[in-house]
Amino acid sequence: MWRRILTVPLEPEAVRLAREDATAALAEYGIRPDSAFAGAVLLVVSELVANAVRHAAEHSPTADVTVAAGAGQLVIGVADRDPRLPDLSPEAVGDGLRTVADLAAAYGGSIGAERDARGCGKVMVARFRVPDELGTTGRRVGSRAR
């Protein structure tokens, strides 16, 4: 699996930084930034990072934004140190997470919230199936963290 991680401060410019890095990550993986799929993924990155800024900044000075791809799937993760897991039931989510869920579902994916591996925070995850027409252009470039 190919993976790229960016750590951003949970401040307003985090959304811009995360989008720029995710755009570069998609290009490295072979997904054109002007494709509808890339647009959906970038909107999801924006919403998940904006939610971290809005809801987790008091518990977490930074968030790790991960773009991972392999086996026909693309996964976006936003990890912070806030231990509170959101209620992802349809009646409880706000407009931002509803948009994230709808975009992921449109590409055969889903969203979720998990405790992080160290047990001191959470990871918001959005999974997508890479469209077949993009699957042949996706390439494994190697792991890279910034």
Rank of each mutant, 00 (worst) to 15 (best):
Arg84Val: 15
Leu97Phe: 14
Gly70Leu: 05
Asp87His: 01
Asp80His: 13
Tyr107Glu: 01
Arg129Asn: 10
Ser110Met: 03
Asp95Met: 10
Val78Asp: 13
Asp95Arg: 06
Val100Ser: 07
Leu103Pro: 06
Ala68Ser: 14
Gly94Gln: 10
Arg129Pro: 08
Leu97Asp: 08
Thr66Pro: 06
Leu74Val: 02
Ser110Pro: 04
Asp102Val: 10
Ala101Lys: 06
Arg127Met: 03
His59Thr: 03
Val100Arg: 10
Asp82Met: 15
Cys120Ser: 12
Met124Ala: 15
Gly77Val: 11
Lys122Glu: 04
Ala113Thr: 08
Leu103Phe: 10
Ile111Ser: 06
Arg118Ile: 08
Arg129Leu: 10
Ser60Asp: 01
Arg129Met: 11
Val125Tyr: 00
Gly94Cys: 06
Arg129Lys: 14
Ala113Trp: 08
Ala117Tyr: 03
Ile111Cys: 01
Arg81Cys: 09
Gly109Glu: 06
Arg115Tyr: 09
Glu114His: 10
Leu97Ala: 09
Val93Gly: 04
Ala104Leu: 12
Leu103Lys: 09
Ser60Thr: 07
Ser60Lys: 03
Leu74Ser: 11
Leu74Gln: 12
Ala113Gln: 04
Ser60Gln: 05
Pro86Arg: 02
Asp87Lys: 06
Gly72Glu: 04
Arg115Trp: 04
Lys122Trp: 11
Asp87Ala: 06
Gly121His: 00
Leu88Phe: 04
Gly70Trp: 07
Ala63Pro: 03
Pro90Leu: 15
His59Ile: 02
Pro83Ala: 10
Val125Trp: 01
Val78Cys: 04
Asp64His: 09
Pro83Lys: 07
Thr66Met: 15
Ala63Gln: 01
Val93Asn: 08
Ala79Cys: 06
Gly72Met: 06
Met124Arg: 14
Ala63Met: 02
Arg118Gln: 06
Arg115Gly: 08
Ala63Thr: 00
Arg129Gln: 09
Ala113Cys: 10
Pro86Tyr: 05
Arg84Phe: 10
Pro83Gly: 14
Arg129Asp: 15
Gly109Ile: 07
Ala106Leu: 06
Arg118Tyr: 11
Ala126Leu: 14
Ser89Asp: 12
Ala63Leu: 11
Pro90Thr: 04
Arg118Ala: 15
Val75Asn: 02
Gly108Ile: 09
Pro86His: 11
Gly119His: 02
Ala68Phe: 08
Met124Trp: 12
Arg115Leu: 02
Leu103Trp: 13
Phe128Leu: 01
Ala92Asn: 02
Pro61Asn: 00
Cys120Met: 14
Ala104Ile: 09
Ala101Cys: 01
Ser60Met: 00
Ser60Asn: 10
Ala63Gly: 03
Gly70Glu: 13
Pro83Asn: 02
Gly112Ile: 04
Val67Asp: 12
Asp95Leu: 15
Glu114Asp: 12
Glu91Ala: 06
Gly121Arg: 01
Ser60Phe: 05
Phe128Arg: 00
Cys120Pro: 00
Arg118Asp: 15
Ser110Ala: 13
Val100Phe: 01
His59Met: 10
Arg115Gln: 08
Arg129Trp: 03
Ala92Arg: 01
Gly112Met: 04
Leu103Thr: 09
Ile111Asp: 09
Glu91Pro: 03
Arg118His: 07
Ala105Phe: 07
Arg115Asn: 00
Gly109Ser: 11
Gln73Ile: 09
Thr66Gln: 12
Arg127Thr: 04
Pro90Lys: 03
Val67Met: 15
Leu103Ser: 00
Val125Met: 01
Tyr107Val: 03
Gly77Arg: 02
Glu91Asp: 15
Val65Thr: 04
Ala104Val: 09
Gly94Pro: 12
Thr99Ile: 14
Ser110Phe: 09
Pro90Glu: 13
Pro61His: 09
